[in-house]
Amino acid sequence: MIEIKDVTKIYTSKNRQVIGVDHVSLTIQAGEIFGVIGYSGAGKSTLLRCLNLLERPTSGQIMIDGVDLTSLNSEQLRQARLKIGMIFQHFYLVSSKTVFENIAFALKAANKPKEEIEKRVNELLDIVGLSDKRDAYPAQLSGGQKQRVGIARALANDPNVLLCDEATSALDPSTTKSILTLLKKINRELGITIVLITHEMEVVKDICDRVAVMQNGKIIELGTVYELFTNPKEELTKSFINSILQFEVPDHLLQKRTGTMVKILFKGESAEEAIVSDMLQTFKVKGNILHGKIEYIQNIPLGVFIMELTGERKEIERALDYISERTNGLEVIAHAA
């Protein structure tokens, strides 16, 4: 378990103070994949680097498995960091060393014997799918392969926690998917707690169990990924979610409407039921679906449909009541003039 207790990080620059992290408290459960999302400058990377004291908090405590890292001396902290792996956006591989040597570096730094290093590196190469690249150099690898080396290196000393600082930001969408799949596999098979920093809600949707939204050094919203997708409270959270679900109705559709335009939210089982079809058969209204999308978040469906209903006003109102009773959200966007 990771406990972040009232952590603040203040930088002093040119006789002025800049607050990077502002009184943040979080509990991250052992074995979960926890995301922290925010735009550039939100403080998320600073918070991540506080977790292994690459940035020492100005105040507050970092507790990992009951140990307060801020209270450790240099040697104790070095030992504690062996159990905290870190993956970076830009890989940071040594260009003059092979894949094997880049991964072995972390083990050599921990004073592991040669035979153990050989065995462990081969195990890690198998885990990340790079057994055939053992003797290759970084210049011979793709971006995704370089990040797999970075992941293997971070896993070298069998950590309990894996910190990922924008680990997929330098990768194309297809490669990002493969890296996220690998991280999820590592989490499930090895039981490693993963803390993942990103500015992409798609990454959060694909891999995280819970997520915190950061702005101006503070946590402004926190919950399971499904909770935030279905019921976001803050405008920043809504903007992140809209980037995936695209809730906004184009102006030209609003201008052309001849009926009542509604947005319908389906959660869980309701997203898989024929509610709209049943409504159209039950009431004397016609329906035109203008936009529709179902996303699976943590394997639970979330559907959004935008429809235009035409017919007599009373019949439309009855149809809307029917939908409202059977779904998780109904918003009338506009009535025809």
Rank of each mutant, 00 (worst) to 15 (best):
A336M: 07
T237N: 04
F283C: 06
T198A: 04
E235K: 13
M279E: 01
S169T: 08
K286V: 14
L53W: 05
K218A: 05
R148W: 03
L26N: 03
E118D: 14
H199C: 05
G144S: 08
T168I: 10
P232W: 02
I4L: 02
L265C: 11
G292R: 04
I37A: 04
V149A: 09
G191Q: 07
E235W: 06
I264A: 00
P301A: 06
L124G: 01
G31Y: 05
T198C: 03
E248S: 09
I84G: 00
I207G: 01
A154R: 01
D65P: 01
P159H: 09
A106I: 02
V285R: 13
V18E: 10
Y296A: 14
Q17V: 09
T12S: 14
G329N: 03
E227M: 09
V18C: 13
G311H: 08
G150V: 09
K205P: 03
G150H: 04
L190T: 11
E116N: 05
E221H: 02
N122I: 14
T282E: 14
E295N: 15
L163G: 00
N242H: 06
L228W: 01
R153T: 05
T12H: 15
K133W: 11
G329D: 01
S71M: 05
V36L: 11
L93W: 08
S270W: 08
K114N: 13
S25M: 02
D6P: 04
Q215R: 10
D158R: 09
K108C: 13
F283P: 01
L236H: 08
I117A: 06
R56Y: 13
F229A: 07
I275A: 03
G31V: 10
M279K: 12
Q140Y: 09
A212T: 05
A30K: 13
G292D: 02
I300E: 14
Y322I: 01
I192R: 00
R120K: 08
R81L: 11
D209A: 05
V211E: 03
I28P: 00
I10A: 04
R326K: 12
R148M: 09
R318Y: 12
R78H: 13
G268P: 07
R81S: 08
P173Y: 07
L196T: 10
L163C: 09
E235D: 15
